[in-house]
């Protein structure tokens, strides 16, 4: 907590690692500022040092490499939405990035990395990334390590820790022909989402061959319910299957959020409704 914060602007990842390693707690990494600045203005955060990573070119941009697609952590939402690579290879992510609230300003300033590291239960990016099997390159003092998002979220600390910097996100292109959907329940234009679901489905004829479903905004972190819906494989879409998905998805939410967006019973039920709608829409698109 400081009235007179210092400001550091590392030019490359090496400098960033040095600065982070040399500081005690109270340092705050800032990129687009869409998460940090409202809290500072509100008085909830008073960092000792701001580490502005917005000028590090290694954190920016989208590249298609042999091992998949890399997205720099300070790539803004607008670029994720507009990227031809993302639109053609990972359309689910491009679409989810367009569902982020807050309007044009947030889309132009906010970064995918900021959205991820805040680990906010109501945000839009994590469910899709989890469904897509994203991996992260994380910089700590001793160098970069690669960690799967799924593993990170099993960690009780739910995050990277203040000594780490999210460098880039690794994604595999989606299977050609896979159907996908991101369904977001947002009750008023100005509100946050109350429940969401990301789904990726592949079909053989009309039978489901693979299914990944993640529900978000209903518990502290998004929940991958793909295993619970494993029984859907081999089935064609039907009203009966829809009901089954809805019931099973709801049943997976053991500790629903209860907040201004709505109470726990409703959130649990909405997890089911969103999962059902997401799978239905994905099935429709598949093939």
């Amino acid at each position: 907590m400081s009235l007179y914060p210092a400001f550091a602007r590392p030019r490359d990842l090496g400098q960033a690692a040095d600065i982070m390693g040399g500081l005690s707690t109270g340092a705050m990494i800032i990129a687009g500022g869409q998460e940090v600045m409202p809290s500072v203005n509100y008085g909830a955060l008073m960092p000792e040092v701001y580490i502005d990573v917005g000028q590090i070119s290694a954190l920016k941009g989208i590249a298609e490499e042999d091992d998949g697609i890399h997205i720099g952590s300070s790539t803004v939402h607008r670029d994720v939405q507009d990227s031809e690579v993302i639109q053609s290879k990972i359309p689910l992510l491009s679409y989810a990035a367009a569902q982020i609230g807050g309007g044009m300003q947030v889309h132009n300033r906010g970064t995918i990395g900021g959205n991820i590291v805040s680990m906010h239960p109501l945000y839009d990016i994590l469910p899709s990334l989890l469904a897509l099997g994203a991996e992260f390159d994380v910089l700590r003092g001793d160098g970069e390590t690669r960690v799967a998002l799924a593993d990170l979220m099993r960690d009780a600390s739910h995050g990277l820790g203040s000594e780490s910097l999210l460098v880039r996100i690794h994604l595999k292109p989606m299977t050609p022909g896979a159907g996908w959907s991101y369904e977001k329940l947002k009750i008023t234009a100005g509100g946050y989402g109350s429940a969401n679901a990301a789904a990726i489905v592949t079909l053989d004829g009309d039978k489901i061959t693979s299914l990944r479903v993640v529900v978000g905004a209903v518990s502290a972190l998004p929940i991958d319910i793909s295993d619970a819906l494993g029984g859907c494989r081999g089935q064609a879409w039907s009203d009966h299957l829809a009901e089954e998905i809805e019931e099973k998805a709801s049943a997976e939410i053991s500790e629903p959020l209860s907040d201004h967006q709505g109470d726990g019973d409703w959130r649990r039920a909405m997890a089911g409704v969103m999962a059902r709608r997401a799978v239905e829409a994905a099935v429709e698109k598949a093939g």
Binding site: Y42, T188, A189, G190, G191, Y192, H260
Partner: peptide
């Protein structure tokens, strides 16, 4: 009081 900001107190936007 639990309602502290416009995230909690949601006024209609033009889209509503």
């Amino acid at each position: 009081q639990l309602t502290k900001n416009f995230m909690d107190y949601v006024m209609p936007r033009i889209g509503d």
